[in-house]
Amino acid sequence: MKGVRHYPGFLAMTIGCLVVLYAPLIVVTVYSFNGSTSITQWGGFSWRWYADVFTGPEAPRFAAAAWNSLTIAVLAATAATAIATAAAVAMVRGGRFRGKSATFALINLPLMVPEIVTAVATLIFFSAIGLTTGYLTILIAHVTFCIPFAYLPIAARLEGIESSYEQAARDLYATRAQAFRLILLPLMAPGIISGFLLAFIISLDDFIITNFVKGAGMETLPTAIFGSVKQGIKPNIMAISTMMLAVSVLFVTLSYFINRSGQKTRA
């Protein structure tokens, strides 16, 4: 007799779910090491497509796109994290105030408006105010839609921190600024790092909005990859994809462990 928690077939479904999720990624990773020029035939293990990415004819284009992607992601995630941290302190520690629920809706608005609509609206806005689309417009758009992603883990973390820690600090002669810097900020740190990492990945991931507001000649990695695969999937794209995949997995794993260690010290 098995307990009420057990349903036959649910384990198989879970495994099936994981297979579906991972199979394409594994296949692409494997084929990125394919020595053959044909993407169908297996020609033995080789690093040649990775070499091609860095030294091949398309290398300058990819390098520029990677540089843009990376710097935009770092800048956008930093800005969004700072903005979201301030917002989280106000929302969680600010008590009740007028316009609180409206502000909450505003923070989450980028999650509710469909991405393609945000893309259209942002393009129209930049063209209406006469701002030439390019690096700056991508950056502004990324900061905006990264805010809720940074906000969620930071606010969740802050909600778990009792206000008695700050009160204890104030009781022990700390000024408000000292209580923030010495007590609240270190306790919030895991949430802030998590928020930054999520915002960073979200920025790196974005294609649709970037594609609308990037302007001519400007590329990020996703738009460059998209441009290439429109002509068919080439092995060097698989090598780039595998590298980006590795970066994403690394970041998510980091974020996971930082969050877990954060929970441990809280207990």
Binding site: S164, Q167, R170, D171, R176, L187
Partner: peptide
């Protein structure tokens, strides 16, 4: 007065020891 300007100190219910 702000709490940090009062010469009184508190033992909190759940102690509020700074965990870090």
């Amino acid at each position: 007065l702000e709490p940090n300007h009062r010469p009184v100190n508190t033992v909190f219910q759940h102690y509020a020891l700074f965990p870090h």
